[in-house]
Amino acid sequence: MDKKILVLIPCYNEESNIVTTVEHLRATCPEVDFLVINDCSTDGSAALLREKNYPFLDLPVNLGIGGGMQCGYQYAVRNHYDVTVQMDGDGQHDPAYLYNIVQPVLDGACDMCIGSRFITNEGFQTSFMRRVGIRFLSGMIYLLSGHKVLDVTSGFRAVNTRLAQYFSAHYAIDYPEPEAILASSLVGFRVKEAPVIMHERQGGASSIFGFKSAYYMIKVSLALIIDRFSIRKQKGGRP
């Protein structure tokens, strides 16, 4: 393949998962490049990355998933990658489905392709309450942008060079997956989904649980509304 593909793998305290995740990617898609973004992990993640000699950014302070991904997109832009992929470091995203989301971008069918577990409803579907929250956020994005996306919290996604350039300058800091979809749609990028099968987290703990789940929903909902009007203002009042 003559196209350059970069896989960005966020890593915060993923010492129990990161090696398995990277080695699975290397075995399944040896032709793609990857970059692990160590977001100031406090466990042994950084030591493992050095020991394995993986290419990685070692952030000096914790920027959160959004800040870390923005650094990754800046790297992708500066190194002229044709497609940039996000893939979680916890083992949930299967690289066997990487080209399900990459190929539509390469074909020019969309600017962003999101790996969705809700098109065929196969594999790990997450908890009932999280599915309710995802549907709610999906409905909000539809109301705010007119674009329907089912798996709005999926971190398994591929973008082209134009959208990578946009994300390198504009990316939500906290839990950015829904905001990135809304922002991309509002400024005119084409967002599509492709079916993938995901797995349950292989180790460690999610950063969103219990009380944090409710806090996440409130925070993201407010952020989406604010984004809708701030991006509209940037576009000179055009929807």
Score class of each variant (00 low, 15 high):
T161P: 04
S213V: 14
T28I: 05
V32M: 04
S185R: 03
Q165D: 13
K233S: 13
T28A: 05
Y12C: 03
K192V: 14
E200A: 06
C40Q: 12
Q70P: 06
L182T: 06
G72S: 10
L8F: 13
L222N: 13
P30Y: 13
Q74L: 01
L144T: 07
L49P: 07
I141H: 02
S168N: 02
V61R: 14
G108K: 07
R78G: 09
D43M: 01
G108H: 11
H24E: 12
S207N: 08
P176T: 08
K3G: 02
V152P: 01
I173K: 05
P10Y: 11
V132A: 13
V152K: 00
Q70V: 04
L35A: 12
R135I: 07
I141M: 07
N160E: 09
N100W: 06
L98H: 02
S154M: 02
R238T: 15
R232I: 12
N160T: 11
V85D: 11
I18P: 03
R238I: 15
S184F: 04
I231W: 00
G108S: 06
P60A: 03
V102N: 06
D43F: 02
F156K: 02
Y175D: 04
G68K: 03
L222K: 13
L48G: 00
S138Y: 10
F156T: 07
L49I: 05
I9Y: 05
L106M: 14
N13Y: 05
S206L: 05
A158C: 09
S185D: 11
A180T: 15
N17T: 15
L6Y: 10
L63P: 09
V152R: 00
V32Y: 04
Q103M: 13
H199I: 06
V220H: 00
L144N: 06
